[in-house]
Amino acid sequence: MRALVLDRPGTCDTLRLADLPTPEPGPGQVRVEVEACGLNPSDYQRAAYGIPEWEWPAVLGLDVVGTVDAVGEGVTSVKAGQRVAFHGDIRARGGFAEYALADVMVLARVPDGLTPESAAAVPSAGLTAYQAVVRRLHVGNDDCVLVTGGAGGVGGFAVQLAALAGARVIATEAAHNADHVKALGAGAVIDFRTEDITARVRELTGGRGVDAVVDTIGSESATANLGLLVHGGGLAAIAGRPDLSVVPPFGMAPSVHEIALGAAYTVGDGRVRTQLSTMLTDLLTLLADKRIAPMLSRTVSLEEVPAALVELSGRGVRGKIVYVRG
C-alpha cells in the first residue's frame, strides 16, 4: 500500500511517500480502506520524539474514516463494506496511508450523507472537547464557560458543545478570529493579545467568574484561569496541568480534570476504549444533524500532508485540515 512514512524522529518535512505491506487484521481488529484522515497537533508532536512501540518506518494519522475492507478473527459486530470512523492508537501505524487497522471496539458508524472529510475532522479534537464539556465538566443550561483558543480544533468543538448545552460561552482568541468563534456559539471573545483575560472575564460576568474552564493552551494559562472559577467550579486541562497551590485549600473547592485521549489505549481497558466509540457516535450524529459544524478549513492530498503539518505546528491554523484520498 502507498503510505506517508517517518523513518526516524524529526520534523514533519522529513515525511516521505513509500510502499508498505498491506496490514492484515488480527483478532478483534478490522482493516479499513482509508477515505480521509484528520491532521492533529499530536501528529507533529509524536513525529518529533517518536513512540517506543512504533514499527519503523512509522505512519502518522489518528483520525480515520473509511470502509471496512477485512475483519479479523472474532469480529461479528461489523462487516466488510460498512463505513466507519475511529480515533486510532498512538502506538500503531495510522491513517496517512491507503489502509489502516483498528480495534473493533473503538469504531463508530458514519451516518449516511456525511462526507468523509467532515467525519474525519471530528475524532481527536471532538472527543477531547466532548470529554471535557460533557463527561467531565457536565456543562449545562445557565452555566458560564470560558474556553481558551476558541478557533482551534478542541476549542472550537468545546465552544459548540457548551453552547449546545445552553451555556453562556466566553472564548479567548485573536481579534481576526472573533467573528468565526462567535458564529460557533461564543457570546463574547476576548483578544488574548491585547486584553487582560482575567479583568475582562470579571467585567463580562459582573465580577462573578465562570462555572467551568476548558483550557487548551498550557499549564500557565490553566493556573491563571483557576482563579476565575466560582465555588465548586471545574477546569478541564487539555495541554497542561494547573498549579493547584495557587488556590487555598477547602475554599473555592475547584475540580480539575486532565484530558488524555490517547491514554484510553495505553493505560485504559476495553471498557474505556468502548467509550471512544460511544462518544464518537454521539458527535457524528450531532454533525449529521447539523447541530455542530466540522470546522473544516481545507482538504489536502497525501503529498501535501507534510507541509500542512508544518503549518499546523505554527499554531495559526483555524479549524481542521483533513487529508482526503484521491
Results as ranks from 00 to 15, higher is better:
Val189Tyr: 10
Arg2Met: 14
Ser42Asn: 08
Arg241Asn: 12
Glu303Met: 06
Thr223Asn: 07
Gln275Cys: 08
Ala165Asn: 00
Arg298Lys: 04
Val210Cys: 11
Gly268Ser: 05
Ala236Thr: 02
Leu164Asp: 09
Leu146Ile: 05
Val272Asp: 10
Leu184Glu: 14
Val201Ala: 05
Asp243Pro: 12
Cys144Val: 07
Ile238Arg: 08
Gly227Tyr: 07
Ala183Ser: 11
Gly227Gln: 03
Arg193Gly: 15
Gly66Val: 04
Thr14Phe: 09
Ala80Thr: 15
Thr22Leu: 05
Thr76Arg: 13
Ala224His: 13
Arg46Asp: 15
Ala151Cys: 03
Gly316Met: 04
Gly232Ala: 00
Ala36Lys: 01
Glu258Trp: 12
Ser42Met: 11
Asn225Gly: 03
Gly187Ser: 13
Ala171Lys: 11
Ser313Ile: 03
Ala132Arg: 01
Val122Gly: 08
Asp269Tyr: 12
Leu17Tyr: 00
Gly270Asp: 12
Gly316Phe: 05
Asn177Ile: 04
Glu304Ile: 02
Gly206Ser: 10
Lys320Pro: 02
Val214Glu: 10
Ala158Phe: 05
Leu280Ser: 03
Thr11Lys: 10
Glu24His: 11
Cys144His: 08
Pro25Leu: 09
Glu73Cys: 12
Ala288Trp: 12
Gly153Glu: 06
Leu244Arg: 03
Ile197Gly: 05
Glu195Trp: 01
Gly233Thr: 06
Val68Tyr: 14
Ala18Ser: 10
Glu303Thr: 02
Thr76Asp: 13
Pro123Asn: 01
Arg325Ser: 01
Arg208Pro: 01
Lys320Cys: 04
Leu228Arg: 07
Ala212Lys: 06
Gly66Pro: 01
Thr172Asp: 00
Arg109Asn: 06
Gly314Glu: 12
Ala188Met: 12
Val169Phe: 11
Ile51Met: 15
Gly218Met: 05
Arg91Tyr: 13
Ala199His: 07
Arg208Trp: 03
Tyr265Met: 04
His176Ala: 05
Val159Cys: 06
Leu114Val: 04
Glu35Ser: 09
Leu287Thr: 10
Gly227His: 07
Leu229Gly: 01
Asn177Cys: 02
Val71Phe: 12
Asn177Ala: 02
Thr194Phe: 13
Gly95Cys: 15
Ser77Met: 15
Ser77Lys: 13
Thr14Leu: 09
Asp179Pro: 13
Ala237Leu: 13
Glu98Met: 07
Val322Met: 05
Val159Thr: 10
Ala178Gln: 03
Gly316Pro: 09
Leu6Phe: 14
Thr285Trp: 14
Ala167Gln: 01
Gly319Leu: 10
Ala288Val: 08
Gln160Lys: 06
Ile321Met: 00
Arg202Ser: 08
Ala92Pro: 08
Ala119Cys: 12
Thr148Ile: 07
Gly227Leu: 09
Arg8Thr: 14
Val65Ser: 01
Leu302Trp: 13
Gly270Leu: 06
Ala224Val: 12
Thr274Gly: 15
Arg93Pro: 04
Ala236Met: 01
Asp69Glu: 15
Ala132His: 02
Asn141His: 15
Asp215Ile: 03
Val154Lys: 11
Asp69His: 15
Val214Tyr: 09
Gly140Gln: 15
Leu280Met: 02
Asp191Gly: 05
Pro254Asp: 11
Tyr99Val: 04
Ala80Asn: 14
Leu17Asn: 01
Leu276Gly: 09
Asp282Pro: 03
Ile90Pro: 15
His138Thr: 09
Asp69Ala: 15
His138Val: 13
Leu164Gln: 10
Glu311Asn: 09
Gly38Ile: 02
